[in-house]
Amino acid sequence: MSLSLEDVRKISSLARLDLSESDAEATRSKLNGILELVEQMQAIDTSGVEPMSHPQDVAQRLRDDAVTETDRRDDFQRVAPQTEAGLYLVPKVIE
C-alpha cells in the first residue's frame, strides 16, 4: 500500500492540517516509509484472535449522577484565543 499525493492531501484535509505544495512530496515519502514498516503486520494470520483495546479486561466504572462541578468559566477562558460575553469566538459557522 502506497499513498499518492492525492491521498496525502485528502488525509491532511480530514485531519485539518494545512499542507503546503512544497511539503506534500516529502510528507508522502515519509508516510509511505512508515506504512511500509506497518505492512509487516499483514503477513500474520490473526483469524480467530479477539482484538485487544485495553491492557486490562475490566468493566467501565460508573459515577453517581450528582453535580460536582462549579462554574470556572473565567479561569478556563483566560487561556482562550478569543472570547466575548462568555462565548468562545470562531470564524462564522455556516450550516
Binding site: 478569543q82 466575548e84 460575553a85 462568555g86 462565548l87 468562545y88 469566538l89 470562531v90 470564524p91 462564522k92 459557522v93 450550516e95
Partner: peptide
C-alpha cells in the same frame, strides 16, 4: 453555535 454577529464571528456556548 450562536450565529448572532460578533464582529463577523460566531459564538460558542
Amino acid at each position: 453555535s450562536l450565529h448572532e454577529d460578533f464582529h463577523g464571528m460566531s459564538g460558542i456556548d
